[in-house]
Write a protein that binds this DNA or RNA. Sequence first.
DNA 1: ATAAGATTGTGATGGTCATCACGTCGGACT
DNA 2: AGTCCGACGTGATGACCATCACAATCTTAT
Lengths: 260, 260
Amino acid sequence: MLLARRASPANFAIIYGMLGSAEDTMAGQFSNSMHSENCLTCKNRHADWFCNLSPQALSEYDALGMHMVVPSGSTLFFEGQAPRGISVLCAGHVKLTTSSKDGKTLLVRIAKPGDVLGLSAALLDTPYEITAQAIDPVQIKSFQRQDFLRFLERHIEGSMHAAKMLNDEYRNALNDAIRLALSASISGRVARLFLEMTAGHDHPNSHFTLSLTHENLASMLGTTRESVTRVLNEMKRKKIITIKGTLVTILRKDTLELLL
Amino acid sequence: MLLARRASPANFAIIYGMLGSAEDTMAGQFSNSMHSENCLTCKNRHADWFCNLSPQALSEYDALGMHMVVPSGSTLFFEGQAPRGISVLCAGHVKLTTSSKDGKTLLVRIAKPGDVLGLSAALLDTPYEITAQAIDPVQIKSFQRQDFLRFLERHIEGSMHAAKMLNDEYRNALNDAIRLALSASISGRVARLFLEMTAGHDHPNSHFTLSLTHENLASMLGTTRESVTRVLNEMKRKKIITIKGTLVTILRKDTLELLL
DNA sequence: ATAAGATTGTGATGGTCATCACGTCGGACT
DNA sequence: AGTCCGACGTGATGACCATCACAATCTTAT
């Protein structure tokens, strides 16, 4: 099994065992995943990932960062913490959330491979605005804040990619705000979310996989678990959608659009 | 009176008279405002504005863009339009909104001098995500999309500034989403907004100017004009805040924080 | 000064949804 | 098999707020 090189002293050591839940299941869980410790030979790199760089830049990038593996359930960083570094997600998914003091949580988004974590906090050098928790076994390439910023300053392609990433984050956050503000009813918010999911280039048309619990959905929609359950069942009852496992199919897109 | 050089053919001509309301009042309304047509000699430039550039970059920047003046009330661009260019705001304020088909509107933010308008749409080359309407007489420096992008690619300081601007937009949108999602009650959202306003570096402590109508506030808070009126009066009645004209004073910050 | 329009104030009413409470289901581990 | 635990389903109730309707101010134009 591929094990990550150790993190730079004190910088990322914290992330191991933060939640303590999954350490004992680490052995073997990466055994058959396709991944590489070397960005130059990495097969997973994709056109619109941050790490899609020219050979020279890529080799500097590779040398600068630390390859790491994080078990599912671990928290990479918490809202409010001082920024410790920047990570580019190579594999796995990370849940990004913010919470209020009374325990309510907003699920901001699920980060996918290619995304950059902690970019905003690092640029502003202010505390993390969100909490990042691995929901799969995750591989990341980690950088010291200053290393990463200097890399951006040296490589225009890097800073253009960073701008693209920030732009994506902006659009996503704006979408969240729009969904919450412009659809007063819960069914409207669900409809909007589902239409966004199909608009995204997942499946060609009217179905997509939704691996979120009702609790998670509620937390994206600013509502409660019970209300999500009710709305979803109502939609199924009215044959607007069907749900089989994690696969959601939209049967009547026009009806969904009426709910906005 | 300083008049803008004419816009490049067909590109910005549209913005004049879009709303048709203010053209006849243009004469004289800028007569005593401090501004310059030349970025190199412009006294208004500020450290964290986009146009805070090194002398070489600045002179290229100045040559590349078109200085323009837009009357209050005009719309610079509409949500859904193909991006026509990028503008850096030199003076005045611009209201940024999105709307749903049924007329509900989300006030995303009020752009201030130094902000870049249309950056996200230009980077992605997708339709504007928001509508931009001048609420003051506004001066802008306008660029063709390609010119601006090439400028960014040539000048690392430019792309770093662009990243900073996008980051600000991201943080702002995220804040909007948080306000809407984590504070269920209207009073909670008002409280959150007011605490944000004081946290911002306006006045040192517990008061700030609020030049928004109740209608505008409602549109930032995802609620109605009437509810805003009621909550504001309730807060005044309970001596949590006072409002004199546009000046809001927070009397009991702790009580506001309880409402979140 | 007066009219016209925008903004703010306020009551009444009905619907939507948060909350609480509990029941059901299905997978994981022993 | 049985237990445990997280996820899902569902009813009852009351609070909060959107909506409608209209009155009272405050602004601006002519």
